[in-house]
Design a protein around this nucleic acid. Structure first.
Length: 129
DNA sequence: AGGGTGACGATCA
DNA sequence: ATGATCGCCACCC
């Protein structure tokens, strides 16, 4: 069996969110984290992308639709996205037009399940909203 | 058990 | 607009 599977629920939820971004669409680290049920974990999204293979990594951009990568990787990401039909305006992608809107319910339910498991593992303060 | 870490994000200079 | 800094937070050593 592939051992490339991440163990932590956070990684699973985030990987699922990343996979849900369709071709020709993009998302952001922050949006993925939020969609996965971990609103403040944008940094982890990058970590998962680096660690887990087989994900549409090129569809994940930094806030505002900017490419977060450096050097050749940045060029490759842009190249791959343009090949999918995603157009750049200067150095960024117009999120208004290309950002994937997580529809939800299905995804949300998955996130909820993950979140429940997560909470079970580490109860901590909540009461926020 | 504790602290450093990072494909980020928002803010400040 | 670009670059530096601080804040976040679960993961990993």
């Amino acid at each position: 069996m592939p051992s490339a599977q991440p163990k932590p629920p956070l990684a699973l939820a985030i990987a699922a969110a990343i996979r849900s971004v369709p071709r020709g669409r993009v998302s952001t680290y922050g949006a993925i984290a939020k969609a996965a049920g971990y609103p403040r974990c944008a940094r982890h999204v990058g970590r998962i992308l680096r660690q887990v293979g087989g994900l549409p990594w090129q569809r994940i951009l930094g806030s505002g639709g900017r490419v977060s990568l450096r050097g050749e990787a940045a060029l490759e990401q842009r190249f791959l996205l343009e090949a999918e039909g995603v157009r750049f305006r200067g150095r960024k992608v117009d999120l208004k037009q290309f950002e994937h809107r997580f529809a939800g319910v299905l995804r949300k339910r998955t996130a909820a399940r993950m979140a429940a498991k997560h909470r079970s593992a580490g109860k901590r303060r909540s009461v926020r909203s």
